[in-house]
Amino acid sequence: MTVRPDQSRTPVMADVAALAGVSHQTVSRVVNGLPHVGEATRQRVLAAIEELDYRPNTAARTLVTRRSSIIGIISTETGLYGPNSIHRTVEEAAREAGYFAGSVGLKTITADGLAAAVDHLRRQSVEGIVMIAAQHEALDLVRRSDPGVPLVVVEGDLSRATFAVGVDQHRGAVIATQHLVDLGRRRIAHVSGPHGWTEAEARAQGWSDTVATAGLQPGPLLEGDWTAERGYALGLELAVLRDVDAVFVANDQMAIGVLRALQESGLSVPDDVSVVGFDDSPEAGYLIPPLTTVHQDFPEVGRRAIAVLHAAIVGGTEDVDRLVEPTLVVRASTTPRAPRDRPSGGAR
């Protein structure tokens, strides 16, 4: 016979045991993921936990398992779609894997700032840390530091950290540029991200490699800063170059600015100039015209980051590919090249 607890108070482990008709020790083994519990008994305990909306005492569980089930996340406060999306999906993946996640945001990554962030998280008894940083300086600091717990770098150069997970940025740039080549575009410009960002460099290299492989003369390379404002300014510069018939832009925000600049200059997108972005941000499909762009599977990045970190924490080996393959989403901002005269100078 099962006994239901008083509904007016917060349920405790003894209430779960009474409702499931098992011992306190059996409930403890189920809650802490320990072996030697029959499947039927485990399911009965889990059903009682759900019915009572029981929340295990984290401190007590730590004493039993000698694990805190807490991880830390360190990120730079960029406000950019990519890093913010990765942060969110890492947190979601951590929860799905049974971890609590605490975060520290840094305006810039410095040696002192990184050390302070790690110290703050260590005082929270984290078992591991995920760091979201894409600048060379940050990755160099990570490589030289010893956080004392496993640390996984996300979104950076996978060759510069012991544990790293990210989207194949070079591959993404290759498929974006090859798409333009296949459409018959012959003078393909690139609006890059800022100097010092690993993603910007990988995307620029992918563009350069693909243009060279196609036997084409590279179009101009203009350095951006990830913002639509800078994309607009560089788009105006590109608009006066009569031979440029395509632009690969290193992120969707800058592509928004490029699209406006080209259209204000009297050029047709995609006919006169085809445009490809990178990220597949939520607004990309609603621009005029809808933007062809490279899709990054951020939820998969989060899951793989947590899989790698969990394996490092428990001393196992993860069975995941650390590079996530990007895909191209083709929309109306690109079209095959047709012989036509470009407008002279553009209307501005």
Rank of each mutant, 00 (worst) to 15 (best):
Q7W: 03
R9L: 04
V12M: 04
A14F: 01
A18R: 10
A20Y: 01
R29T: 04
V37P: 01
A40T: 11
R42K: 15
L52R: 00
N57S: 08
A59R: 02
R61W: 06
V64S: 15
V64D: 08
I71R: 00
I73W: 01
T78G: 04
Y81N: 15
S85P: 03
R88G: 01
T89M: 07
E96N: 06
G102T: 14
S103Q: 09
S103D: 03
A115K: 13
A115H: 10
H120Y: 12
L121V: 07
R122I: 00
R122T: 05
E127V: 05
A134T: 14
A138W: 01
R143E: 13
L151K: 05
L151N: 06
S159M: 09
V167P: 03
D168C: 02
H170A: 14
G172K: 05
H179I: 10
D182L: 11
R186L: 08
I188N: 08
A189Q: 08
S192A: 08
G196V: 09
W197A: 15
E201A: 14
Q205Y: 04
D209F: 13
D209T: 14
T213Y: 00
G215F: 10
P218A: 12
L221T: 10
L222I: 11
L222Y: 11
V240G: 15
R242W: 00
D245T: 11
V247N: 04
V249G: 08
V249I: 07
Q253G: 03
L259M: 03
S265E: 12
G266F: 06
V269K: 05
V275G: 00
D280P: 07
S281I: 13
S281H: 02
Y286P: 01
Y286T: 09
L287S: 10
L291H: 10
V294Y: 12
A307E: 15
H310K: 12
I313M: 15
G316Q: 12
E318T: 14
V324R: 10
T327F: 06
P336L: 11
A338Y: 07
R340M: 10
R340Y: 00
R340W: 01
R342V: 15
S344M: 07
R348M: 07
